[in-house]
């Protein structure tokens, strides 16, 4: 019980530090969010808004909106993840973290939670942008909310794990997307199909995918918390 409360206290310490850094630097607000919005708009340019899907009587843009939204979030999350470890390697802080008494699992959890919090804000704004630009309906908000939380947790946990893995490398910046994007492919598929069900129904089609996303998140949180100490050791 004491170990668990220490782990949570360590996670909170690291997450609040990362969020204070973001509050001060506003990198997510001033760079990641505009990047996401630009990608959303470019996707809109790339797909004709007038062409319709005959059998569903929806525009192609509406139909593919869930996939484009999540693809945008996944791409933008690469910047947020890169930033999460860039602040640790800028002045040797990652090595200093090894010298602390912090539980490595708590450090992993804290960094993941900070990324997740940033992504949730990003998704809310990009989601509003997608509804506006692509004209998708807001079908089943509760399922949509569950999908967003589960997908965000998946991206944050898996992304933090692979970013940590790459953090010791000299080619970290280019290595992270190569590691993270394939690893997140199942989450992208699950998030897209679950969101499709949440927007266009029936919602019963979306719950199994939401469950898969939840399992994916739990798997990566578990793997990250168990292996982060070893990764810190090797950086």
């Amino acid at each position: 019980m004491r170990v668990r409360s220490e782990l949570l206290a360590d996670a909170w310490l690291v997450a609040s530090k990362d969020l204070r850094i973001e509050r001060s630097s506003r990198v997510v607000a001033s760079q990641v969010l505009p990047f996401g919005l630009i990608v959303l708009i470019l996707f809109g340019f790339g797909i004709s808004p007038d062409r319709r899907v005959v059998e569903a009587d929806r525009t192609v843009l509406e139909q593919v909106a869930p996939g484009l939204f999540w693809l945008t979030v996944f791409l933008a999350s690469l910047l947020a993840l890169g930033r999460s470890f860039a602040i640790e390697s800028a002045d040797g802080s990652l090595e200093a973290l090894r010298l602390t008494g912090l539980d490595p699992g708590g450090v992993f959890l804290g960094k993941s939670l900070a990324v997740a919090a940033e992504l949730l804000v990003l998704e809310a704004l990009l989601g509003a942008g997608a509804l506006l630009l692509y004209g998708a309906p807001l079908g089943h908000p509760f399922l949509l909310m569950v999908v967003v939380v589960a997908a965000t947790a998946s991206i944050a946990a898996a992304g933090t794990l692979y970013s940590a893995l790459a953090s010791g490398s000299r080619v970290r910046d280019t290595l992270v997307p190569v590691l993270v994007l394939p690893a997140l492919a199942p989450a992208l598929l699950g998030a897209t199909l679950a969101t499709e069900a949440a927007l266009f129904g029936p919602p019963s089609d979306g719950w199994p995918w939401a469950g898969l996303l939840g399992a994916f998140a739990v798997l990566y949180f578990g793997a990250g918390m168990l292996s982060f100490g070893l990764m810190l050791e090797e950086t």
Partner: peptide, 14 residues
């Protein structure tokens, strides 16, 4: 131990 390394290990934004 208490280590003062070459890098200060400080967060510039804080």
């Amino acid at each position: 131990v208490g280590l003062l390394a070459h890098h200060s290990a400080l967060y510039g934004e804080l």
